[in-house]
Design a protein around this nucleic acid. Structure first.
Lengths: 366, 366
DNA sequence: TCGTTTCCGTTCGGTTCCGCTCGCAACGAT
DNA sequence: ATCGTTGCGAGCGGAACCGAACGGAAACGA
């Protein structure tokens, strides 16, 4: 008996009886329970059945309210403890946390933050700890790729408290997972940088990334799309990966990138993360390449870009707002429960024009 | 008997009789009182029933304040005149307008609505009229396709007042046009309908559309994607276009569709717009095709679907909320200006299960 | 022929569910 | 006031259930 046959049969049975026990299915089909569970997981992922303890039911039953709408306590919504799990507090996320903190505070409540580390197991551990700790809603930026990511997302969808994703979306395999999400349009942000440089006359823009994060992937996609649209070269040797600023042996690698670009006549680059952009400018100065005179640099991040010399033009993801927004989504969900439709919000980054591209006169900012 | 089944039954009984004794439940379901108590506790925690000594009752109604009136943004939003241009007031848009109206009113302001007619020239005329009239923000659902649409969008982007798009997004050629937008995930909604029918055992789902609107296009895409994912047939003769209900000569066309599906063994369809779905059911009855017995119908729209006979299961775009949301986006933009990043919000439709698919058998569970 | 992938079963540790039992509180009758 | 009845909550132990990890078998391609 093939897997697809079994699943077909399971569908037929659950449709017919409304609810089926896994043990019965296992016996009837002559396979073990774990196999049935696997089949059921596959069906549940596609939204065709709904799992319950010990069996399955048809989806979209009236009973489909795992997330609690606020009970009798009525007006006393003031004390909604908000949990938050971010993958790092060294990069990117601090501003998101601050935004969330501000929003939670202004709602008269309290935020409990935990740090994971781009690890699905750790994500899960921290989130369960928060739930045990009594938080009423969870903001999370978990790992979503790979099998472990899928499992984690499934688990998030089955938690008794609402979950809001930050800077993450379920992959296509789980496209119907009903979680709210707040994301930044990173790909579009890369496009902003490329367009800005193009508008300044550059006919080629290199992309330099240093981290293998979801953000870098999005930036690559945006860079490729925009360069293609604008008719700029986008061969693979303009999509450059470098070690992080400060890792052993970084300067010669950066130098090589600079020389490579100079050879190719590329005088503009978009660099992911401020530190790497600053490192690039630093090496350029040592090599006698004037910024912005002979090389225009746009940083993607804008945490410390303004403090560089020269101040770096940067694409700025709206991290603070993203945190705020995530809290608003979460509190809205907590207040309304499943009556509220799924919200997916995307924020655009902004372009902060400074001096590293020769676009703004230094005094133009008054 | 599974726990979830018991809880569902308890809900049904308390709904039906208003009040139930725990001892009766225990006896009826063949479990001990302590188990019933635990089930009841779970339901009460979710606010679905209310405990009383010796039994349970329906939850208190007076606690009917789910939609928390949102405190006005910033502060000085008091007198912001909001302009709104919708392409029609006969179909779809009235609910959006009502939602916007409610939101504007609760912000202590006033809404000025105009109707265009899927015509870019008219769109522009109405919007300029509103701007001249002194509105501070504009909500619009303009034509966005074709050269005229592009021009119109460019013009909207250059207006001195903020513009929020409703159910529209700039096409890829203008993907960087910095307008806020609130849209419905129609493609996903079509997927919800298809998945529901598939979960009920149907191995083929036809799509019937009647309007050449952006919505129909999205539905087609969602239908194609979901059928492909689920391994259902998605040849072009299951993607059917019909004239609107009531246009001259509609009945024979609908009949033909019904016969075609019957021949192909297709016994489930997703129909765009309630009126057409109702027309389809009407013709099916005349042809002796029982709904839901021999044909399952899901409507996409849910304006009057509940009033049909039998009541139609429908996918429900959250129009009212979309209107609210558009106003919130607009007021936020008006209050903050360009400091505010572009917001792109997507709302998911919900699935309202009724009787036209044979899924809901409310009384069958006794 | 040798990986590689896919599918399925086994094992194991942890969780959930459920009934039993006990002590406490509320009510009503004597 | 006392006692029996009924309902309720808490704790305990057994059973069922679940997920994760490991390993074997078959299918597939080079």
């Amino acid at each position: 008996m093939l897997a697809s046959q079994r699943q077909e049969l399971i569908l037929a049975l659950v449709q017919r009886h409304g609810t089926v026990r896994l043990a019965d299915l296992a016996e009837r089909m002559g396979v073990t329970a774990v196999t049935v569970r696997r089949d059921v997981t596959a069906l549940a992922d596609r939204g065709l059945v709904q799992r319950v303890h010990g069996g399955i039911t048809r989806p979209h039953r009236p009973n489909r309210t795992p997330t609690a709408p606020r009970p009798a306590l009525g007006g006393a919504t003031g004390r909604t403890l908000v949990g938050m799990v971010v993958p790092s507090v060294e990069y990117y996320w601090p501003h998101v946390v601050q935004g969330a903190q501000a929003a939670v505070a202004s709602a008269g409540s309290r935020l409990v933050m935990r740090v994971s580390s781009y690890d699905p197991t750790e994500d899960r551990r921290q989130i369960s700890a928060l739930v045990d700790h009594g938080v009423r809603v969870v903001l999370a930026a978990p790992v979503v790729h790979g099998d472990a990511g899928l499992d984690l997302l499934r688990w998030l969808g089955s938690l008794p408290v609402p979950v809001v994703l930050m800077e993450r979306l379920p992959p296509p395999e789980l496209s119907t997972l009903a979680l709210d999400a707040a994301t930044t349009a990173h790909a579009l942000g890369a496009g902003l940088g490329v367009r800005h440089l193009t508008a300044l006359g550059h006919r080629a823009v290199a992309l330099v990334t240093s981290r293998t994060s979801p953000t870098s992937t999005a930036l690559r996609a945006g860079w490729a799309a925009t360069t293609a649209e604008l008719g700029l070269p986008h061969d693979t040797d303009l999509d450059i990966e470098v070690p992080s600023y400060g890792t052993p042996g970084w300067p010669p690698v950066y130098d090589e990138v600079l020389l490579h670009c100079a050879e190719r006549g590329v005088r503009a680059m978009l660099v992911h993360a401020d530190r790497e952009a600053i490192g690039m400018v630093e090496r350029a100065r040592d090599l006698g390449i004037d910024v912005p005179g002979r090389l225009a640099v746009v940083s993607y991040d804008d945490e410390v870009a303004a403090a560089s010399d020269p101040p770096l033009t940067a694409v700025r993801p709206q991290k603070h707002r993203l945190g705020q927004l995530a809290v608003e989504l979460a509190l809205g969900r907590a207040a309304e429960g499943d009556r509220r439709p799924v919200h997916r919000v995307q924020l655009w980054p902004t372009l902060e024009v400074r001096e590293s591209c020769g676009a703004a006169a230094p005094a133009s900012e008054l």
